[in-house]
Structures are given as C-alpha cells and as structure tokens.
Write a protein that binds this DNA or RNA. Structure first.
Lengths: 218, 218
DNA sequence: GTCTATAAGTTGATAGAC
DNA sequence: GTCTATCAACTTATAGAC
C-alpha cells in the first residue's frame, strides 16, 4: 500500500524520457481495461472496477485518461489497428487460395490470442458504434472496398467462384469472431471449455469451409 | 397524462379473465424492453428508460416483474424460443440441400424481422450468459447434438461434403446473426443503411455460400 | 505524479396514498 | 392495480494534501 519504489523524475533527472512512466502506466491501464470492458461493456463497467483491475486508485485513471469515455476510446483505437491490418494478405498478384487462407489464419489467430479485444469491439458495434462509427464509415469502408475490387478481379479472371466480396468479408468476420464473442455458447454446445484444441479444429473448419465456398478447395 | 380508459376489474366483474390486464401490460413492457436492452445491454439500461419506452411509470414495471433482472430474463426466455425452433427443418429423411436452405432462410428471416432479439441474445452471450447459461448447456446442447447426428448420417451416406456439424452450426449462426448484431458495420461498409434490398442480397449470399461449402450447390 | 476525501448526480427499489 | 415521493447505494469526476 506504500513504499513502492518510484522514479521521481521531477527533482532528480528532469529529462529521463519524459513520457516513460506515462507510457508504462497507460499500458497497464489499457490492458486491464480491455479485459473488464470485454465482459461488461462500456455501461456495465465502473471506474472502480477498472481501477481495481489495474491495481491503481481510481483517480489515477482519471489523471491519465480524463474520463471513462476517453479511456474506452483508447481501448477501441488499439483494437481497430489489429483489425485493419491482416487484410494485407489480399493483393492482386497473390494466389487467391493462399491469400484467403492466410487472411483466415490471421483472423483466427487474433480471435484466439485476443478474444477480449474482439468482445470490446462487438460490444461497441452492438451499441451502434457510438465511438468508432466515423472510422467504420471512413477508413474501414475504403480499405474493404479496395480489397473487394481485388477479389472481383480474381472472379473476373475465373480464378475463383463468383461471390459477393463485401458479403464474403461479413461472413468471414462473423465466422472467426464468433469463437471469441460467443465463446460461452460454443463451449456450452461442445460440452467443454474452449481450449487450444477446439480452436485448432475451429480454424481448420473455417478455412476449409470458406475455401470450398469460394471454389478454392485443394 | 390522466383520463385513460381503464378496466376496473376488481369491483365490477371479479372474474373477467383474471390475467387479461396483466398479460396485456406484460406484453407491452416486454416489447419495449427488448428494444431498449438490445441497444444498451443489461447494465446500460435503466428502469427509467424502460418505463419511458413502455409509457408506464417505473414502479409499474417493478409491480409486474419485481426486479430489472427478472424482466431481462423474461425477455431472454421469449427470444430463446424463437432461436430453438426452426432447427426442425433438419430431419433424417429430408433432402440435405433443401433442409439446410430452409433453415438458413428461417434464420435470415428472424434476423431481418427481429434484429433486436438477436442483439439482446448477443449481449447476453458476450457477458458469459449469466442468465441463460443453464439452458445453453442443457436444452440447446441436446437439440444441437441431435441435429448434428442427422448431418453426420447425411455425410456418411455421401449426400454432402464432410463438414464438422457442430462447427457448421456455429458458422451458420454467426453468418446470419451478424446482419443484426453488427448491422452498423454492415451499413458502414455498404455505404447505406441496411434495408430490405440489402437483406435479400445477404440471404442469397449466405444460402449459396453455405450450400457450396457443403457440396450442395445446385 | 499519486492518492484520499468528497461533491454532485443517477441508480434500483419500495412505501404508501389513491 | 396504479402512481408519486423517497431512500440508500452507487456512479463519475474533481479538489487538494502529499
């Protein structure tokens, strides 16, 4: 509760990387916040719970982020970055089968390793994306439509079955993220907690399922 | 604000269908509650908002349902019924292609007509199904495993491609419900609000996508 | 930078008049 | 059965000592 070693930067060394402590603390807070927001959503989470999860007093969170909303937005920003990358596998000159397989594996890896990120994102979308609506209608939309044109070209060249590319993405996102967002339901139906083995099986299923639907089965 | 016509059953006619008023009021409350819970989740919804949406004073909701939690559970119970039915299309003697197509169309119809129901369900699952976990591990699990055995038989008989039946259900639920739960994202990417036309296109996509993946394309 | 104490407001729920 | 008035508990946020 006291006597924790501290770096008193102000008096001793005025310029020891001015943002070092801030960066470390913010990282601790963001990591804890992702976990807590994932289970209870924005409204269901109190600053008190967030503070307990981070191991810091409530007012310290206010000091770094100001309000609960700003903290929530910061968590979402972190997650969106993860979400948007990974579509890079889809390139005009790539082999469709390998490109889609790589994208699916990337998405399933994200779902497995960062399920809480997926849940925070799902909560935000369920509420109508009050925080990230702009990004969805801007950055996400542009990126997806660019990748959709690549898929359209593959179809035109007869390299895969005709599939509406935008709906292909919707299906792909849904099939992969369901293992994080609805993990409880998956576990209930399987009869066991969803572990590494189940996730491997899920990844194999989604990959072969989508490739067959796209006429790209091996 | 006053002078609303009322049925004063107590003094005039002691036995005019004792539960008539109750049933009507509960129905109004449940319908309003589904809409409000869908957007904000359990924690994000206040009894005040629920009362406003139902056009009744807060204490009347308490009179009929006792607590917010009981009201929420009642909404979920309504929804689960919808969810569980519709799998009836899957019968041993059915033609796999037509049975799956019918189930998909049923699911897409639910998503289109009752998107709020889907969202309330999604919120509950995201939070780890605190209210309906028992039902998922009991009734849902049994029903799904029974239907999975039918699909396994179809596969054994060479009537469709080998697909893990449980994961087929997970994919199917995800692909269909995403149009309700993540409607905001779909609308953002499409560039327009999701209307009837988009939902028809979505339904056609999901049906052909799944049938191809199952080796059942026409 | 960190934390205790507290202000200002909202919440779920109930008592009790009608 | 219905509604107004109210309560105790909890919420976010901040002031100010250290």
């Amino acid at each position: 509760m006291s006597a924790r070693p501290r770096v008193v930067a102000s008096s001793v060394a005025p310029s020891v990387k001015p943002g070092r402590i801030r960066q470390a603390q913010e990282s601790i807070i963001l990591q804890a916040a992702e976990k807590v927001f994932a289970r209870a959503g924005f409204a269901g989470t109190s600053m008190n719970e967030l503070a307990l999860a981070a191991g810091l007093p409530k007012s310290t969170l206010h000091y770094y982020f100001g309000t609960k909303e700003v903290l929530h937005r910061a968590v979402l920003a972190n997650i969106l970055e993860l979400w948007l990358e990974g579509m890079e596998a889809i390139q005009p000159e790539a082999e469709p089968r390998e490109a889609l397989a790589r994208y699916i594996r990337h998405k399933m890896r994200l779902t497995t390793e960062r399920p809480d990120a997926s849940r925070v994102f799902a909560n935000e979308l369920l509420q109508g994306a009050p925080q990230i609506g702009d990004i969805l209608r801007g950055e996400l939309r542009r990126l997806v439509r660019r990748k959709a044109r690549i898929i359209e070209a593959w179809i035109r060249d007869g390299r895969m079955t005709a599939v509406d590319p935008l709906h292909l993405f919707f299906s792909l996102w849904a099939m992969t993220q369901t293992y994080a967002d609805f993990e409880t339901q998956v576990g209930a139906v399987l009869g066991t907690p969803v572990g590494a083995r189940a996730m491997n099986r899920a990844a194999a299923h989604v990959e072969s399922f989508v490739l067959r639907a796209c006429g790209l089965a091996s």
